[in-house]
Design a binder for these strands. Structure first.
Lengths: 218, 218
DNA sequence: TAGATTGTTAATCGATTAACAATC
DNA sequence: TAGATTGTTAATCGATTAACAATC
């Protein structure tokens, strides 16, 4: 069918990059942050690989999806590669994020100083508990979850961290999505059902612990 | 070389199971917990797969590494499979764990009610700050990190959660390992160097957020 | 019985690694 | 220049999927 090739050409253009590669980029970026911290100006795929326990070939291959950032014989300029990765991951800016749940975990997230240096800023905290609403956390007022619908769009928040009991997680995720949230970092030990176009990442310490106990064994 | 086959036979016996498979088992277990909660008595690889966004073939293949737990035409008995997975992951018991770092995150972990139902119990909390030592968190006394060397072995603790600033993470990891810790759940945004036989899992919310922002885009 | 679903084998797909020409 | 390291291609390895006989 002549003419139908255009969509194929488009496919070639937009070069599907494997999600597993994307998942490693923040790890590379974190390692480069460490190296910059340590005062290293230049590194190589070999050095980075030893540092992370990854093969140097894999690092070069991963980066090659986005262009050539190194120099033969020398390696990579730490600061340059760091900037490139920040651009690729879209953290060359500051993303406003919301926290839902003002329990111990919500407090920990609200006070965490590690977000701003890496592209994120907590700008809103919501809770369901009337006793908590109006409380101040790290300078922010805890708001009622009913205000999600108005606050999320008005602050152009696209990302939320969900730190609530498992029983209410799905329902609040629904509210967030309705309000325009496109990315959810879910701390509740439950699989969320979300529509296409909404990205969910899961953090469940017990999953990680159980992964380890398999090897720690009997 | 006759006689050297025995080691090969041993290889066949101990059937190396891919780590990526092990990593999915806790997810299956979590889903089964949900189903049990919902009162479902029986499920199938198809149902479980739709629930998790995984192919049914993959679930059957993963489980087949450990035996046959289902029944043709019927599927899996939720409670039976749940028990089997708990045995495989060695969470058919309660693992004592230590928390290092009594900041906001340490507090959140100490108060988290999700550990005990899934195989873990926090039994010790350590901190470096003299002001925090002696404080009570969820009924436990915060101890000085100097006591790691004596408390870890005396309570037979094999797993620690590291919730300290990035600057001291490696040094405290070393102390933990010296004291006998074999598994570390590291919340500091740094790659830990550890000897063979010590298992590390990483939780870094920023890594997950940056994974999402790649797709949320420009 | 007819329908459903397992456990497993073989086919496919994709990711990792090895190797090396290019070149700093 | 000699040595080192990139970016990329081809080879290898491993993981996922498709398919189906067995059987509940």
């Amino acid at each position: 069918m002549p003419g139908s090739t255009s969509s194929h050409e488009l496919d070639l253009m937009s070069e599907e990059i494997p999600d597993i590669v994307i998942g490693r980029l923040p790890i590379y970026l974190r390692a480069l942050n460490q190296m910059a911290q340590m005062g290293r100006e230049v590194t190589s795929s070999r050095e980075l690989g030893e540092f992370l326990g990854i093969s140097s070939a894999q690092i070069r291959k991963d980066l090659s999806h986005f262009g050539g950032f190194g120099k033969q014989g020398t390696g990579y300029h730490v600061e340059t590669l760091r900037n490139k990765l920040q651009q690729i991951l879209h953290v060359d800016r500051e993303w406003p994020v919301a926290i839902v749940g003002a329990g111990y975990l919500g407090h920990a997230l609200a006070h965490y100083r590690g977000f701003t240096p890496r592209g994120f800023r907590v700008v809103a905290v919501f809770d369901i508990d009337p006793d908590k609403i109006g409380q101040k956390i790290d300078g922010m007022n805890v708001m009622a979850v009913e205000r999600i619908a108005v606050e999320i769009p008005s602050h152009s928040i696209q990302i939320a961290m969900l730190a609530v009991p498992v029983e209410v997680a799905q329902s609040l995720a629904n509210d967030l999505i309705k309000a325009g949230i496109r990315g959810i970092l879910n701390y509740a030990p439950i699989n969320l059902a979300v529509p296409d176009g909404v990205h969910v990442q899961y953090i469940d310490p017990v999953v990680e612990l159980q992964h380890m106990t398999f090897y720690l064994g009997g």
